[in-house]
């Protein structure tokens, strides 16, 4: 499933030209598709979320089914701050949402990551079901099944208002995504990133060189939860609304699909998979909602059977094959 990066200590960390591509595309899309900016913002936000999922699944090797919980926690934090406490500054909300999600990630991580395999999957699922039930029943805080409305957001830095066309939302999300991408990229190239690869490769060996494996997993888990929380806050701010579906098992499943579609453990898999999924969904799901889910299901089964590297993996093997063909 995962591609294997073979060296960290001998790797060059300079930004390759191809790595600029997503940002060029994102900026170009801003000017080329002014009518689709709210979809665009949604894509950027979900990329952020899927990126955080990749950190946990792809890089730390923790299979979780409860990742949406952190997204939801971030979303509700931002929403509740605005609706109940009158804190409407978006950056403040963002910081708060990231912090709260990170802390919850830390607490649950300490608890959950002592286990492994099926128990771990179960625990992540149970905890996210717990969060969902809290959001569902604590109606005076969250609005329950009707969702939390009455969320208003002040202009960013007191100046950039969230406009009807989603221009501000788009650029704001893009900026947050860019910063997080840079941090994640740095982290993955660091000794910390190398040790994550070590844990995934051989946990026994990692313990045998004195690594406190569990502590490190809790660290990634909290970082990832924090990022998911940021994404949740962005969603609240751009929609001015939070619903229960920001927390559900279905969302956890869907983001897993996006990640797998793009390619697990590839950093840019999150970008490609999410964009492809959400654009296709936008085009198809409204017209053929049932067929859409059927298609996604079939696609997923197909991926597990035939294309475990996702789109980027397919691209890799294609270029490898081309290269071999050209040499011959």
């Amino acid at each position: 499933m995962h591609p294997h990066i073979s060296t960290f200590y001998l790797a060059s960390v300079r930004v390759r030209a191809a790595e600029l591509l997503p940002w060029i595309v994102a900026l170009a899309a801003f000017f080329l598709f002014p009518d689709f900016l709210s979809l665009g913002a949604r894509i950027l936000i979900y990329i952020l979320l899927v990126l955080s999922l990749d950190l946990v699944i792809g890089y730390a090797g923790i299979v979780t089914l409860g990742h949406a919980a952190f997204f939801g926690i971030g979303a509700y934090t931002a929403g509740i701050l605005s609706a109940h406490f009158g804190i409407k500054d978006p950056l403040l909300q963002l910081a708060a949402a990231g912090t709260v999600a990170c802390l919850v990630g830390f607490g649950t991580g300490l608890y959950v990551l002592r286990t492994s395999g099926l128990t771990l999957i179960m625990l992540t699922l149970a905890i996210s079901a717990l969060c969902l039930e809290v959001a569902n029943k604590a109606t005076s805080w969250t609005g329950g099944a009707d969702g939390l409305s009455g969320v208003t957001i002040a202009p960013i830095l007191g100046y950039f208002r969230f406009d009807l066309w989603g221009k501000t939302a788009y650029l704001y999300s893009l900026a947050v995504l860019f910063v997080v991408w840079w941090l994640v990229r740095t982290l993955l190239n660091s000794p910390f990133g190398a040790s994550l690869a070590g844990i995934r490769d051989n946990r026994t060996r990692m313990e045998g060189i004195g690594a406190l494996v569990n502590r490190r997993l809790v660290q990634v888990y909290s970082i990832s939860a924090g990022i998911a929380g940021l994404a949740g806050a962005l969603l609240t701010q751009t929609n001015q609304f939070v619903g229960l579906n920001a927390l559900g098992f279905e969302l956890s499943g869907e983001i897993l699909v996006m990640l797998v579609l793009g390619g697990v453990g590839r950093l840019y898999g999150a970008f490609i998979g999410t964009a492809a999924y959400l654009i296709a969904q936008d085009q198809l799901a409204k017209k053929f909602p049932e067929d859409w889910y059927l298609g996604v299901g079939i696609l997923l089964v197909g991926v597990t059977m035939f294309a475990r590297g996702g789109l980027l993996g397919a691209l890799d093997s294609l270029t490898a094959r081309l290269r071999r063909a050209l040499k011959l």
Partner: peptide, 12 residues
């Protein structure tokens, strides 16, 4: 992943 795929198919 296989299971989630099957669930999606069945739901649809």
């Amino acid at each position: 992943l296989l299971c989630i795929g099957l669930i999606f198919i069945a739901v649809a």
